[in-house]
């Protein structure tokens, strides 16, 4: 049995530190996911009317976000806007802004798709019964759209959690950075720490994402 370097996890507070690093990454994705869901629903409803200004804006916005790697968007925000506008952004704030912009566009597109998929007759019947526009959305359109929307938006959040691992490359001290620090600090005592620590992170991300994608799959089957 070769030395897998797992014992380093139990030395001192190493394991707790790793969990703390994971939390930094998860916090970024949860904040961004929250903003994305709210902004996405508003944007999606606004864009669900065909040939409206907002639908064109959403299409262009989505096009830009889709074509550029998230890493490039992070660079543009972290290095580009700070240079162009002269403000100061921490890596974490830059990441939250980028992921929110990304998530809002994707979420907006999902909402737009879900709302447009509901037969026009539903809206017309509701209006004929005297419901006001807000009531039509609140009681008729959204409850039906949510069934299509929920699995897809859970998948989006899972993707967001996975993508937050990138923030280490713009200097945020999250789980991968903490891992490197632990490996460096224990270089003498456990030279194989890199294997054990990165394996642990691998498993941690899996445990964070797997329940979500499983839930999405279950909901999709359940509501079909």
């Amino acid at each position: 049995m070769p030395d897998l370097g797992l014992e380093v996890l139990w030395r001192g507070k190493n394991f707790v530190r790793l969990l703390g690093g994971l939390w930094v990454a998860l916090r970024i994705s949860l904040i961004a996911a929250g903003i994305s869901v709210v902004a996405g629903i508003l944007l999606g409803i606004a864009a669900s009317r065909k040939r409206s200004v907002s639908s064109v804006i959403l299409r262009i916005w989505l096009g830009i976000i889709h074509i550029m790697p998230q890493m490039v968007l992070l660079f543009l925000m972290y290095f580009g806007t700070t240079r162009a506008f002269g403000w100061n952004l921490s890596g974490e704030t830059a990441a939250i802004i980028v992921f929110s912009l990304w998530g809002a566009a994707e979420m907006g597109d999902l909402v737009r798709g879900a709302v447009s998929s509901i037969p026009v007759i539903q809206r017309e019947s509701a209006e004929a019964l005297g419901l006001k526009p807000f009531q039509v959305y609140r009681w008729i359109i959204l409850p039906q759209a949510v069934r299509r929307l929920l699995p897809l938006s859970i998948n989006l959040i899972t993707r967001m959690i996975k993508t937050t691992s990138l923030v280490t490359l713009i200097g945020v001290v999250e789980i991968l950075k903490v891992a490197q620090q632990i490996i460096e600090a224990n270089r003498k005592a456990s030279p194989n720490a890199a294997f054990g620590v990165f394996l642990t992170i691998f498993v941690m991300y899996y445990l964070a994402c797997r329940p979500l994608s499983l839930a999405a799959k279950k909901l999709e089957k359940h509501w079909r």
Partner: peptide, 24 residues
């Protein structure tokens, strides 16, 4: 399939590049 789809590429790369050499 589940493992590869539920972990970020960056973490996979770190494991391959820094972790695997430790076991040869």
């Amino acid at each position: 399939v589940e493992l590869s789809r539920n972990t970020p590429l960056l973490v996979q790369l770190f494991f391959i590049y820094y972790g695997l050499p430790k076991i040869g």
